[in-house]
């Protein structure tokens, strides 16, 4: 089966995020002065061939820890692992 997985990687809370700060500093110039705590992360989409959903989810978790994120500075959250019934993963 093919599964589509979506993983979100973000800098751990408390670590300075210069990209977030830069965006936060630019928003008031566009008239939005009520925004704070902007954080920039990564979104990773993967298509996994696996025997079932559990195997796919386990593998995505392993990949998230070993490569997609650095656990010293980042948190990785699996947002979704779903069967790719209609072949979206091929796109």
């Amino acid at each position: 089966m093919r599964y589509v997985a979506r993983v979100e990687v973000s800098l751990k809370p408390g670590l300075l995020d210069p990209q977030g700060k830069a965006i936060e500093g630019s928003l008031p110039a566009l008239g939005w002065s009520n925004v704070s705590d902007v954080r920039v992360g990564k979104y990773v989409r993967l298509v996994v061939d696996a025997t079932d959903l559990e195997a796919a989810t386990t593998q995505v978790g392993d990949m998230s820890r070993r490569l997609l994120s650095n656990p010293v500075i980042e948190d990785a959250v699996i947002r979704e692992v779903v069967e790719d019934a209609v072949g979206n993963g091929r796109a």
Partner: peptide
């Protein structure tokens, strides 16, 4: 990254 040394390096604080 290889865990041969402790810690990590992120973007400069001064951006």
């Amino acid at each position: 990254e290889a865990s041969l040394l402790p810690g990590a390096l992120i973007r400069n604080a001064g951006r």
